[in-house]
Design a protein around this nucleic acid. Structure first.
Length: 747
DNA sequence: GGTTAGGATTAG
């Protein structure tokens, strides 16, 4: 059995077949019955004092390949049906006297992606030199607590450079520079107090102090410095050595650093604590971003705390803003506008709204908007100036980062704000502001207001939350939700093509055949045929203008004498134009042709029924051939359904189908208007099929929703109910979106 | 198997 992954280590327990007994590594001996046992490598190594808690496991064949692709260091694994052998390396590695071998025939392995810091294999031993024992011009491995660092920045040479300073229990501080072309190889550092392990660094003396520089074969691994938090190695490297002694070293450094004044005095600053003029580090979440010019990007962020000073709002055109609207948070003085300059653009450009961020050395500045009077109070703006002095910079934080736990719990309390950010009251709906070019490249101002009204109205009773399109895309179907979006594009652009024929039986959907195709069917049916002669029908014929073509009308004898006898007429030998003219005077005309004098329906490419200005089509796949012995009794009023039933035709329904490309500040999304189309336009599809006025009405509405040649700002916002669902497409689940429960308001 | 930087504020 191949290696399988589960999402949670607790799921491993459910995977254990009932005939297997859980056993611990320590209790494994050469005489253990392996076929009835399984091992879950779950114990926290820090809690263990007993000997032989680690065991080598050797994988063979495809299992080895599968395992190496599925498992990462630190994963919890469950092994079963292994072979127990004597460990040849026991004397050397001091691990378990046995080793487990898995050859892949009947064995199975489950791997949990949750990292519980368990060592899978121990490969090599490293020695680490205390920082006060470093000798010049040697290559060493060291551990240290980071007391200062800069995010990697481009050097004047060919590489990025990380500059940091570390210390350890010896209290000696050592500077360290790391050069690498690849950003991902640089140490992942979030804050002062993080712990770093350096392998193969060269020592040298610089300005009377020891310094470290990466040299061939170098690597770095970093850890969060919080005491009692899990020891999770941070590295981009796929293979690295990490064992119990590393965990111990990290724990010891954490403990030591926690009592040092330089770290315990490091107060975390939230927006509520910011004073004008301060330089500080800010942990926050990105709400929206906008490129201001080639040297400046605006990041709108929040940390859930309210600033004591009024915050400056930087206005940008809504189409230049990526991310959700911040109107409500702006009003509550929760949104910090951060202007990010110069060298930091490289990082800022890649950030996506929703990301958690860490700013380093952010500058809070009181500023007056250009149009503000001198007597009005100034507002607080935030600048991440160019350069890297004082470690100035920014980086995204992974969502699971321990540094984010308190931020997340504060943001949770604002969950209503996040969801209802775009106001529900229909008055203040969006800020949009395009600065006139003449004034300059951008302007600052405070609470601009403009109003746009929704054109569509949701009719559903759901009390679901309004989501951004980006959130909808991240959601798992099935789901109903509300969105506010503009129509970027729609298909078909030729709106008559949105009228479709749909078979409710086989779910086939077809375009309505165009007149030239239908006319051809009529011409070919009328060619060289003699009027049909059916016992059940009364027939009258007339010559057409064309020689050799006879037009015949047939009425069921069953109906003669009944009030319905003129309601259903079979007609033969006409052109399409002629039957269209005739259908003005007769309620139901069924075009037929003669095959060996027997009455037969035309090819179902043509309508099987003309009824006033409407034409009805039958499904080619589902229609039964019961026309040989039609029954016409017992029907009071003939409509398309009764006719279809009598003829054994599967009636196709008219439907309207439009595909919208919706857009909001966060994303675009393709949504169908399908089951809800008639309600949306207040137009029935079958009526639209025969009415130019109704088709014009649809066109007018579409021109309002998406005015031809309009810019994005000119398009109205639509308040929509969306249904998110999945369909099987080539055996793969595809997520689809449909507009439901929504109508266009009629003024 | 070179060089880069070697902390120490923008000035919008």
């Amino acid at each position: 059995m191949p290696v399988q992954k589960v999402n949670d280590s607790s799921d491993l327990d459910a995977k254990v077949p009932s005939h297997l007994q859980r056993t611990s590594i320590t209790s494994l001996t050469m005489t253990s019955e392996p076929s009835h046992r399984c091992v879950k490598t779950q114990e926290d190594p820090l809690q263990r004092t007993a000997e032989h808690t680690s065991i080598n496991v050797i994988f063979f064949g495809t299992l080895a390949k599968d395992f190496s692709q599925s498992a990462r260091q630190g994963d919890v694994v469950l092994l079963a049906d292994f072979t127990i052998k004597k460990s040849p390396s026991f004397l050397r590695d001091k691990l378990h006297p046995c080793q487990l071998e898995m050859d892949g025939k009947d064995d199975f392995v489950y791997v949990s992606v949750i990292c519980l810091h368990f060592k899978i294999l121990s490969i090599a031993k490293y020695t680490y030199v205390p920082l006060n024992d470093l000798k010049p011009r040697t290559v060493v491995n060291v551990y240290g607590v980071v007391t200062f660092f800069k995010q990697p920045f481009p050097s004047k040479g060919s590489d990025y450079c990380s500059t940091l300073k570390i210390t350890d229990q010896s209290d000696v501080k050592v500077g360290c520079n790391i050069f690498s072309k690849k950003l991902e190889d640089h140490p992942i550092l979030f804050r002062v107090g993080d712990i770093i392990r350096l392998h193969r660094f060269k020592t040298d003396v610089f300005r009377d102090s020891m310094s470290l520089l990466n040299t061939f074969g170098w690597s770095t691994v970093t850890f969060d410095g919080t005491t009692d938090s899990p020891v999770v190695p941070r590295t981009s490297s796929k293979s690295f050595h990490f064992g119990e002694s590393d965990i111990r070293t990290v724990q010891e450094l954490r403990q030591w650093a926690a009592n040092q004044s330089w770290i315990s005095n490091d107060l975390k600053v939230s927006l509520s604590m910011v004073k004008p003029g301060m330089y500080f580090d800010l942990t926050c979440q990105l709400l929206a971003k906008a490129v201001m010019d080639s040297r400046c990007i605006l990041l709108k962020v929040w940390d859930g705390t309210k600033c004591q000073h009024p915050l400056l709002n930087v206005a940008v055109a809504s189409d230049a803003l990526e991310g959700e609207s911040t109107v409500v948070k702006d009003r509550m003085n929760l949104t910090a506008n951060v202007l990010v300059y110069d060298n930091h653009l490289e990082v800022a450009r890649e950030l996506k709204p929703g990301t958690f961020l860490q700013f380093y050395n952010l500058h809070a500045l009181l500023q007056r908007a250009p149009d503000q009077q001198p007597d009005q109070s100034e507002h607080l703006s935030f600048h991440l100036h160019g350069g890297t002095s004082y470690g100035r910079g920014l980086r995204s934080l992974p969502a699971e980062s321990p540094a984010l736990q308190s931020l997340k719990s504060v943001l949770e309390k604002h969950v209503d704000l996040v969801e209802y950010d775009e106001v529900n009251d229909g008055t203040l709906l969006e800020i949009w502001y395009t600065p006139p070019e003449a004034v300059g490249w951008w302007r600052l101002f405070w609470f601009p207001i403009s109003v746009q009204f929704f054109l569509s109205m949701r009719t559903c009773e759901h009390n679901t939350r309004r989501l951004t399109l980006a959130r909808v895309k991240r959601s798992t179907p099935p789901l109903s939700c509300h969105v506010r979006a503009r129509v970027k594009k729609y298909k078909p652009q030729q709106l008559y093509q949105c009228l479709k024929l749909f078979c409710s039986n086989c779910k086939t959907m077809e375009d309505v055949p165009d007149d030239s195709a239908v006319a051809k069917v009529f011409r070919e049916s009328a060619k060289d045929s003699q009027p049909c002669d059916e016992q059940w029908a009364a027939t009258s014929s007339a010559s057409s203008r064309e020689p050799g073509r006879t037009i015949s009308m047939h009425i069921s004898r069953d109906m003669v004498g009944e009030s319905t006898h003129m309601q259903l007429i079979f007609i033969e030998g006409t052109t399409l134009d002629e039957i269209c003219v005739l259908s003005r005077d007769y309620k139901n005309l069924v075009p037929v042709r003669s095959v060996n004098s027997r009455m037969t329906l035309m090819d179902l490419t043509a309508p099987f029924l003309f009824s006033g200005d409407k034409r009805y089509y039958g499904c080619k796949k589902c229609s039964l051939n019961t026309f040989q012995n039609p029954v016409f009794t017992g029907v009071e009023t003939w409509d398309e359904q009764a006719v279809a039933k009598a003829l054994g035709v599967q009636l196709m329904q008219y439907r309207l189908l439009i595909q919208f490309e919706l857009e909001d500040q966060t994303d675009t999304l393709e949504a169908l208007l399908w089951e809800n189309t008639e309600r949306f336009f207040h137009v029935s599809a079958v009526d639209a099929s025969g009415s130019q006025d109704l088709q014009d009405k649809i066109q007018t509405i579409m021109d309002t929703i998406q005015p031809p040649d309009s810019s994005l700002e000119e398009r109205p916002w639509l308040d929509l109910c969306l249904s998110v669902y999945s369909v099987k497409d080539d055996d793969r689940n595809k997520v689809c979106y449909q507009i439901t429960n929504t109508e266009i308001k009629e003024e």
